[in-house]
Nucleic acid binder design. Structure first.
Lengths: 359, 359
DNA sequence: ATCTGTGCTGGAATCGTTTCCATGATGGAC
DNA sequence: GTCCATCATGGAAACGATTCCAGCACAGAT
């Protein structure tokens, strides 16, 4: 009886051939006479031989594993993205090692180090920190693809040699700009003049552009930088509503911030959309369940993951200078209406009525 | 210059010692004089040496990786569970390989095979299929913990030798029974007599018990088996509402089915809670956002993952005959009210008024 | 009959680590 | 001064695969 798993040596002995022959037959690389092939296959089957990935990995200096880094797996957007990655990886028989960064560059760097140590072959990442954190990955010859966003400091023109390499890392992004332009245009068309924004830097930039494009004055006080951590989002939304009760519409930069905005509005007795209109970036099932139903900018989260995995698995050598950009779409539901009060009359509504703010 | 990563040999050469010494110093196992220790550490730092996990894994016949199998990573319950696992694994420097089974036993078996081949050390699984699928895992000496539920055919008393081993696999479960008893008791207390159920076998069993316990007659037509796949859930909920318009309350067995129930009720113009009361197993953020807010049975999803990871990482040798059961809690919100019509008067409300069902 | 090219085959080297074991050195006790 | 225990040390053997390369058999051409 076998005490443990059969190795290639056991199979070779059982089939009366050399280990090299067994390897050739089973991996299908070299050639073998049909007679020996049969013997080997029979012996392998009889011993229930399963090649050890450990031995192979060492010899080939690769693991056949794909690293995936997302900020927060409980955020539906990222779990959908992960689902896309998993789906593609499964079809290629690759394992996926998942790590969550919590948007913390330090944690991200740790996880990157782990991937390098483990000789992970490929990495798909929603980067949380600086571009330089990724240099070790490139040096280790790991194929890298960014998803959803680019690392900080990667948009400007390249400077050093490593920076150049980083600029060639493929990326799969959503067309934030169009989606945000559509949303702002829609709100402006309804007559909104004091439109707030809650979100990260990238989309904030697009939001400002969209305001200009729609001829709505930008008001820095209405633009709040927030990353969408669950514990700080509500406070960010609530304090914006309280600080500026004259706000007539709000664009939330992701689904966590959108949730916070809806909750904060409800808590402060702001009726949606009568008192304030809300648009959220990213569509989620509950957008149809809450009342009023939420108008959103939908993005193909699962596709982004799938495409990123395709890029990194199918043609890992391909380096692109232009990122793959997937379309977004404004899905109009029930959370927006023309402003009823003060808004649209002048630059600042005079003496905005207190709408029952408690804090 | 180094063309590639420095190996332990390079460090040994640079420090003027043998490889064994380097290994001892760096892994902290054997002893070494402070003089050589210093030399080795200096050389390692200078060469930026990072031990190859590949080599170590082969020698130690382990990967230091944790496999995690869940039905669907986009289901918030499972992504929370995964988050708990990831969190605990990170604190132990273990990598987590995530696979999704889609509740498909065949896919599950494939993924299990992959884990065995890869020499994954430990596995946490929400099992989707038969108990026998896990025998290869045990044979490979992989430490296994079940989470959220047990494999089919594991509740009865053990029969064979392997079955016995399977019965010793630790498990972390939610206290479904109490939660469901509380919910059914609550609904019965409100006066409901025709309470429906939508969900899997395990919780269905608990539901029937709870009905008996509360003195409410069980009605097989009101009990629908559904696993909670996104594409079939809505149809299951809608057809239940249509088939039995006299249903006065519904308990949904998970958050996907709950979502489907709320959506189906809305689509069929059933007002919640006036026409039908709804309770959902598993608390999610949108339960507070939808209107009316949803009464739920909350379960500590993240904790379950964390505890499972603790079990499998900290004392992997511990085998338990009693599963770890974590508490559930009925969170009363706004989706339940006393039945208004027909219900509570007799066994079957006579001639229930059509409430505008469209189908 | 000899030569050559083709196609199988298996021994051995390799990947980078850990760990066993033999060796040499050191230091204290007698 | 001798002896023994203790300790640091490095060579070498695993771990389980892949793959290079040399050897060998055999068929066809000369």
């Amino acid at each position: 009886m076998m005490d443990h798993r059969a190795t290639i040596k056991d199979v070779a002995a059982a089939a009366g051939v050399g280990v090299a022959t067994v390897s050739r037959v089973l991996s299908g690389n070299g050639s073998a006479s049909s007679r020996t092939r049969e013997k080997v296959l029979e012996a392998a089957a009889r011993l229930d031989y399963r090649p050890s990935a450990l031995g192979r990995n060492l010899k080939l200096r690769r693991t056949g594993a794909l690293g995936l880094l997302v900020p927060d797996i409980t955020n539906l957007f990222y779990s959908r993205l992960a689902d896309g990655v998993l789906s593609c990886a499964r079809s290629m028989n690759e394992h996926v090692i998942v790590g969550t960064t919590g948007n913390d560059p330090e944690r991200e760097a740790e996880l990157i180090g782990g991937f390098v140590d483990q000789s992970v072959d490929r990495v798909i990442a929603v980067p949380s920190g600086d571009a330089e954190a990724w240099i070790p990955v490139l040096r280790a010859d790991i194929h890298l693809v960014f998803a959803d966003r680019l690392p900080l400091g990667l948009s400007p023109t390249p400077t050093g040699r490593d920076a150049t390499a980083l600029h060639k890392v493929p990326a799969v992004l959503a067309d934030d700009r169009s989606g945000i332009h559509a949303a702002v245009g829609y709100l402006a068309g309804l007559g909104h003049r004091r439109i707030g924004f809650l979100g990260g830097n990238g989309r904030q930039q697009a939001f400002r552009e969209a305001l200009t494009h729609s001829g709505v004055p930008a008001d820095d006080e209405l633009i709040v930088t927030a990353r969408g951590a669950r514990d700080t989002s509500y406070a960010a939304a609530a304090s914006l509503f309280q600080r500026r009760p004259d706000i007539s519409a709000l664009l939330a930069g992701n689904n966590i911030l959108g949730e916070a905005a809806v909750l904060a509005a409800r808590e402060l007795d702001l009726r949606v959309p009568k008192d304030v209109s809300i648009v959220m970036f990213d569509d989620v099932p509950w957008a149809e369940l809450c009342s009023p139903t939420l108008t959103v900018i939908s993005q193909p989260a699962r596709d982004m993951g799938y495409r990123a995995a395709e890029l990194v698995l199918r043609d890992p050598r391909a380096t692109r200078t232009r990122p793959t950009v997937l379309p977004t779409e404004l899905v109009v539901r029930g959370s927006c209406a023309p402003p009823t009060d003060g808004a649209g009359r002048g630059r600042y509504g005079t003496d905005p009525r207190d709408r029952g703010l408690r804090g």
